[in-house]
């Protein structure tokens, strides 16, 4: 549990993004491969079920990319596929390794307006719930209406409409509950935390990556 939240979330957000940006800029295959290896290494430090969840997404996305780009040319298909795989894996490691409240705290650190964070927060909370709900309703509908049924689509939109109205009401009540517990629409920044050794190491690695990016760039030019 503890290991999961070790690296300072602000550092994590900054360096995850910097990695994605460097990857996108780089046209050097050696650099891209280095980052790929580094990403795979970080991935290997995570738990099995997390690795599986992350790889499922990134492999699927890269496979799709590869097939799409196959008819174009060798450079595009290989380079872009590797970049896509590395980027998607890097991005997906962020929510799996940082607490959600820490990520919103980090957003606050970067001066993102509260209203954005609040909407994001509510959306995340409701996506799972709404998804499950919709699935249940669709099953119920399937069971009730056997065979072809012209009303089906009518009912489907009724379901979606109902779900929308209901969840708006629920979310309003949730907001009331938050207010009752002292929330006034403003998110609080993360508590100031001293940087640990792990944080420093993490910072060093990523600064090294930035230097590598420019160094390799120089050699090629």
């Amino acid at each position: 549990m503890n290991q999961k939240y070790q690296i300072h979330p602000v550092l994590k957000v900054i360096f995850t993004f910097s990695l994605v940006i460097l990857l996108s800029f780089s046209h050097n295959f050696a650099f891209v491969m280095t980052i790929l290896v580094y990403t795979l290494f970080s991935l290997s430090l995570m738990k099995g079920n997390q690795i599986l969840a992350i790889l499922k997404i990134s492999l699927w996305v890269s496979l799709f990319t590869f097939i799409i780009l196959l008819p174009s040319n060798k450079y595009s298909s290989v380079m872009i596929t590797v970049k896509v795989f590395t980027t998607v894996t890097t991005i997906n490691m962020l929510p799996h390794s940082t607490k959600w409240s820490s990520i919103t705290g980090a957003f606050k650190f970067f001066n993102i307006p509260d209203i954005f964070i609040l909407v994001l927060d509510i959306a995340i909370k409701y996506i799972v719930m709404l998804g499950n709900h919709a699935l249940q309703l669709i099953w119920a509908l399937k069971l009730r209406s056997i065979g072809k049924n012209r009303d089906k689509y009518q009912s489907l939109s009724g379901i979606a409409g109902n779900l929308f109205i209901k969840s708006v009401e629920m979310s309003k009540e949730m907001y009331s509950a938050m207010e009752c517990r002292g929330f006034n629409g403003k998110y609080i920044t993360l508590e100031k935390k001293r940087l640990s050794m792990v944080d420093l190491l993490y910072m060093l690695i990523h600064i090294g990556i930035v230097i590598l990016f420019f160094y390799i760039g120089k050699i090629v030019e």
Binding site: I115, D121, I122, A123, Y126, I127, G131, S171, G185
Partner: peptide, 23 residues
């Protein structure tokens, strides 16, 4: 615009909207 034109209790609608669009 949203801050000005919306009452506090209606902000959750935006969240639900996002969840819907996401799905």
């Amino acid at each position: 615009k949203v801050k000005k034109g919306i009452t506090k209790t209606n902000i959750p609608i935006l969240g639900i909207g996002a969840a819907f669009s996401f799905l």
